[in-house]
Design a binder for these strands. Structure first.
Lengths: 261, 261
DNA sequence: GCTTATGGTTCATTATTTGAACCGCAGCTT
DNA sequence: AAGCTGCGGTTCAAATAATGAACCATAAGC
């Protein structure tokens, strides 16, 4: 792997830790030599991507990503566009609705709206959604080119609950259903007692960029209800896509047709 | 320079461009070979830091920084803490107030509040503030260790207006005044017709992390008024610092005394 | 005062980065 | 249509930068 890749992985690892971390720890977590890790950290710090606490000498994510994110969001305000849709859906469904975005080969949660109820599903912003075990993951994969499906299913599939589908062939079955239906259903795939439905937000060329998902306690959710959530997720996802890519991108001649080529 | 540094500089360059940019252009702008630039871009794209438009094949900032920024801001919500102070100050002063943050060796604008008036100063979010020619830069440097002042003044100082102070010795004089007064004044240092006052937001160890600045049209601003703005900027900056570093950091034994060691 | 952590540094060895020249393609000119 | 030009992208020997075992200094624990 390239040096840049290693350094960015370090940054990624650092971002997943809930607290500041010392040199030795981060070197171990990234399987890097202490000297190497240090050189990376110094270099990243020079550019503001990490910062070192002057007292504890531990490292944390710096403020440079905040600047980049502002620029990115100013020009491509995905969240600004998407959040109103998510909020509306959370109100109408009265269940937790979350939005994910594909970035760096993974699907991660970027926004969550909780309904005003005591009993609801908790989803954390920043959490990573496994492709085979979540409604969002399935919805995303189902609309990807088959090469990417193959790549995702080649890796070992973790079994999170008794209900997690880990057989690649069975997952392909779920993907086919999802593609036909337009939304995915995850029946306790990641956590027991939780059912969810998700639909992909797609770029004009058909490629998914993220997902809208509704997550509800299994105990109070009928089959009719989850199909309704799925339909609403599709509406929200399409609404986001239309508003996000809006007028500018429609000038291109990119076909709307591609689904699984 | 290390490979990581070059790649992060490329990212930085990309972020300063107002639009998507092609391979050849970015290689030229970063003084890199085309092949090198491409390898960097591919590597950065793998991790979501840049993305390539599938149609135009041009590159832009990706969504990974957005994820990192969310994590950073969730744990250190500098903007969330600071914005109310900036807003209050903008209202009470009836002038443009902006907040800057030190990151990657530079001071960049991260928030701006405009007053409700027709005639006011415009400051862009994301703009870089030169140390010697802006109130924010002077306020920042004045409270830095002298080694960093030396480093900043060793570089050639650009003359932005007829009033820009570019003699290192004279700049040092301004810094001394600033340190004594607690806030800086920039008299048309960056733009003609603009006067501003700024105060540093400081970490518990005394090190500045950014600045609060009030910018007003010179024509309507008396000496009394600019001193009042300075005092208010100090109050806002201290308020932000106290709220930002609040309870957690006060456990340490870091001295409040350091100013220019 | 010894042991064992930590963060940080050194420098000969090693693996990666580098870039001139290259390809194929699309748009433009003649 | 032939030829030119600029684009994104690729190749491989040469040059350079990354690497990591061993090291130091310091602090905490026993």
């Amino acid at each position: 792997m390239s040096t840049i890749g290693k350094a960015l992985s370090l940054l990624d690892t650092l971002s997943r830790l809930g607290k500041d971390v010392g040199l030795t720890d981060i070197a171990r977590l990234c399987s890097l030599d202490k000297a190497t890790a240090r050189r990376f950290l110094v270099e990243l710090e020079k550019h503001g991507f990490v910062e070192q606490d002057p007292d504890s000498r531990r490292y944390r994510i710096g403020s440079a990503p905040v600047r980049l994110a502002r620029i990115r969001e100013a020009r491509y305000p995905f969240l600004r566009v998407a959040v109103p849709f998510i909020r509306t859906l959370a109100e109408s469904s009265a269940e937790t609705v979350h939005l994910s975005e594909f970035s760096g080969g993974r699907l991660s949660t970027i926004h969550v709206e909780d309904p005003q109820r005591a009993h609801r599903i908790i989803v954390d912003v920043g959490s990573i959604l496994p492709f085979h075990a979540t409604a969002s993951g399935l919805a995303f994969l189902a609309f990807c080119p088959s090469t990417e499906i193959d790549a995702a299913l080649r890796k070992p599939l973790e079994k999170f609950t008794d209900h997690t589908v880990v057989d690649p062939q069975l997952v392909r079955g779920l993907l086919d259903e999802t593609a036909a239906r337009g939304f995915s259903i995850s029946h306790q795939g990641l956590e027991a007692g939780v059912i969810s439905a998700a639909a992909p937000v797609r770029a004009p060329d058909g490629r998914p960029i993220g997902c809208v998902a509704v997550a509800a306690p299994l105990s109070r959710t009928t089959k009719t209800a989850i199909y309704e959530f799925g339909a609403q997720a599709i509406a929200a996802a399409d609404g986001i896509s239309e508003k996000y890519y809006g007028s500018e991108r429609l000038t291109g001649t990119s076909p709307k047709t591609r689904r699984r080529d």
